[in-house]
């Protein structure tokens, strides 16, 4: 489940609940649908309301990074809880996306 807002070609998506292999498929479909609908220059993913995240979250970010790159845009991650940033550090995601 997600909430989102669009302003001046910035799409901010707040992910709600848990990110695992089971939920990631639905999250991917929802986020990619919004990206195609609004063609943002920047996709901001807000993790403040994520209460669980495993390696499926890494794949979710990498996939959205590839999609936004192919469209000439970028991805930024904001408000990462400690457990999420710990997992993302293991994959060194900050090499590819801005983490605010």
């Amino acid at each position: 489940m997600i909430n989102y807002e669009v302003s001046e070609r910035i799409l901010t998506v707040t992910i709600l609940g848990e990110i695992d292999h089971h939920t990631a498929i639905g999250l991917r479909t929802e986020i990619d649908g919004l990206v195609r609908k609004y063609s943002p220059l920047c996709l901001i993913l807000d993790f403040s309301r994520v209460d669980f995240c495993d390696s499926s979250g890494i794949a979710l970010v990498l996939g959205r990074y590839r999609l936004m790159k192919s469209l000439g845009g970028e991805v930024e991650l904001i408000r990462l809880p400690e457990n999420v940033s710990h997992i993302f550090d293991m994959a060194d995601l900050k090499r590819l996306v801005k983490i605010g």
Partner: peptide, 11 residues
Amino acid sequence: NEDRAGMGFSI
């Protein structure tokens, strides 16, 4: 597939 990061064992 592209939904997997290959990071499961590392974690």
